[in-house]
């Protein structure tokens, strides 16, 4: 057990130090696939969060509740549903998204939309209510007021985006069901880890895990650093 860990750390250092080209390309693919997923989810997630946080209407609580409940959706379940939808014999088969990186991105973006919506809406709601009054009394239009409130909750929103990216980056279910773990095409860090574990290459998969965690931690670290300055 202990030896496996030492071996894993050793392998991780070698992989990073020597810049193993395949591991590097897998990591880049992970970053870009999940980055695009995050971007997509922000595209519709942030407006939803804004709408939920800044306006009041009937059924608002219901929608909030729905997104809160969806926070815990099992990735494999979502992956399976999307697989059936995107399969060539499924209703969305014509788009030919199964086993493509774009397919993973779309799947992950759906997975993390509840995180973007719930976290960003909470961040905006927790902004001092006075800010809204202040913007209004200084003559801001409704849109300008919303912008000011959003600006006040910038860090909360950024943290929501980072959290959703991390979730997409570290999830396995969607990536393996939609992507199929095809080498050079849809293999990402998590599916590699699953494959290497299944292969019995425990040390190598822990090494990949270390790389994955380094990326997630450094992202969080950079954000926190920027936040302080």
């Amino acid at each position: 057990m202990f030896e496996t860990f030492i071996e894993a750390i050793h392998q991780a250092i070698i992989l990073i130090w020597k810049g193993d080209p395949e591991v590097f390309s897998i990591a880049i693919r992970s970053l870009s696939v999940s980055g695009l997923a995050t971007l997509l989810s922000c595209l519709w997630g942030l407006p939803i969060a804004l709408g939920l946080a800044l306006s009041s209407f009937r059924g608002k609580k219901l929608i909030r509740g729905f997104f809160n409940a969806m926070l815990g959706v099992p990735t494999v379940a979502l992956g399976l549903i999307l697989y059936l939808l995107l399969s060539k014999s499924g209703p969305l088969g014509i788009f030919q998204l199964l086993y493509t990186p774009l397919g993973i991105s779309i799947g992950q973006s759906l997975l993390i939309t509840p995180i973007v919506v719930s976290f960003a809406a909470s961040a905006i709601e927790s902004t001092d209510i006075g800010v809204k009054d202040l913007a209004r009394t200084l003559g801001a239009s409704r849109f300008q007021t919303d912008l000011a409130v959003m600006h006040e909750s910038t860090w909360g929103i950024i943290l929501a985006i980072v959290a959703s990216f991390s979730r997409a980056f570290a999830e396995l279910g969607v990536a393996i069901m939609i992507g199929g773990n095809i080498r050079y095409v849809t293999r990402v860090l998590t599916t590699s880890i699953a494959l290497e574990t299944a292969r019995g290459e425990i040390a190598f998969s822990i090494a990949l895990t270390i790389i994955l965690m380094i990326i997630v931690f450094s992202l969080t670290f950079i954000i926190n650093f920027l936040r302080r300055t």
């Binding site: 693919r29 970053l31 990186p101 991105s105 950024i158 920027l226």
Partner: peptide
């Protein structure tokens, strides 16, 4: 400072998309 920060973040995001599309186009 804030504007600079936003520019940095946006640039990072755009680079991500760039990379993303690059990989997609490579396969597609």
């Amino acid at each position: 400072m804030r504007t600079k920060l936003f520019v940095i973040i946006i640039v990072v995001i755009i680079i991500l998309i760039g990379w993303g599309s690059y990989t997609y186009f490579n396969t597609k």
